[in-house]
Design a protein around this nucleic acid. Sequence first.
RNA 1: CGGGGCGUGGCUCAGCCUGGUAGAGCGCUACGUUCGGGACGUAGAAGUCGCAGGUUCAAAUCCUGUCGCCCCGACCA
Length: 499
Amino acid sequence: MAKQQRTAVSPTRAEDYPEWYQQVIRAADLAENSPVRGCMVIKPWGYTLWERMQRDLDAKFKATGHVNAYFPLFIPKSYLEKEARHVEGFAKECAVVTHSRLELGEDGKLHPAAPLEEPLIVRPTSETIIGEMYAKWVQSYRDLPILINQWANVVRWEMRTRLFLRTTEFLWQEGHTAHATEAEAWEETRRMLDVYADFAENHMAMPVLRGEKTADERFPGAVSTLCIEAMMQDRKALQAGTSHFLGQNFAKAAGIQFLSAEGQQEYAWTTSWGVSTRLIGGLIMTHGDDDGLVLPPRLAPLHIVILPVAPKEEHRASVFEACDKLAEELGGLAWHGNALEVHVDKRDLRGGEKMWSWVKKGVPLRVEIGPRDLENDAVFVARRDTGEKQSMPRAAFVGEVRERLEAVQSNLLQRARDFRAANSRNIDSLADFKAWFEGDGGGFAWAHWSEEAGPEAEALLRDLKVTVRCVPYTDTAEPGECIFSGKPSKQRVVFAKAY
RNA sequence: CGGGGCGUGGCUCAGCCUGGUAGAGCGCUACGUUCGGGACGUAGAAGUCGCAGGUUCAAAUCCUGUCGCCCCGACCA
């Protein structure tokens, strides 16, 4: 077949972005839909990616003083009822366990039996049950702070689901902390937002805006929700992580009280923060291209794949040996505190098929070694992010492989930053705002806005499917007037269509 | 929950209008030729046509019911 411009993934991003997204997941073998509606099976390549994320995030949580624990999957219904806004926010999407047994009926089918006295909710999040436990654990200001994280699955019965971005069951971590003072809890809320932003940018190579959610977008029951927002390649925003300042709302609901140094009974101040497998969706849509997944080296399950090229049977032994030797040598190198992950693909497949399978999976560096390379003591190296290929002396490659991975990592971040910059702008009039977002248009619009923008503004935003993504942290805040209502605004907020 | 659509080998689908005993491509298995780039040939395995009723000599096809899934809307990490 003639060499042609053919993409590994079809349709391309430009042709049909949502379909492209699904096809990348399939091509890279990350996950697939399960027999259970809205739930996904995360396949080994996708799960290893999640494990890499867990590894790096967990280290950051530990470094900021947190420890891991585990709380139950089931939450008594009465717990959830204790915080009014929390109930309101989650009630519509809860899976409820009402029975504890199945009995074989005359019809040969199983029927639920033994109804529970109190129904159990499959956790959509764990504030309430963790709060109950904290109430028992805290008596004195000396018991604070409590800084606990848990890695868990949660269930939210969503109406429409998309692999990784929104599934009925998903994996995440949820940090839950309790503090003696408001200031300390606020500090924690901000610290963890920074941890997320650092992870997103430096590990995922996904640039994010840090900011605060408006009242509409706030976590149910929180006083304030901070978030990181990323821009996908279709210019839509993805909320990639949230950190909530819960004030004393949950402490009051659960009765987390302590005796202060001054001898006063006081309610604790709590926070919670989480990121989920949604990050994998963000990763796909930030870096993926028309040939599939593109992985930032710091999170790649494999850094380097080595493909033996043995056109004739008599080459096999020597080529394989050279590949194994290179893999062993590279595997002995450490990068960012972890050994390089290297794999020699000895599968009995045709060269092209084998190569493309790794391209689609997004492995950062591909090395090919054949008889000619052995003669010249050379290796043929290809970069996934740029498609750049070159033959180079083996020793030179080993010597600079880490710099090369670093280059891929920073190129991905820079590319994503440039994309976001090219699709962000200040908007100062309603007409410009409409023009910017109409049809498939959009990106990040930085505009002045007032909390009391009015019903007309709300209607327009609904029509355009645009929301305020966040009130961003910025060092160039300048006051202005709301483009909808003319009311005074302290700073620009970021509008976008969102996932 | 409203409005559309679809259930046929592992996957994507044709066949249905105009009933006559099941097809294609991809994938899979074997052998051969290939192989520094997503190959080709030959042979082969694989489907109670979502499920239940009905009409008929005969149903993937027509009728009724039912279950499930997908897309679009209201809700969301």
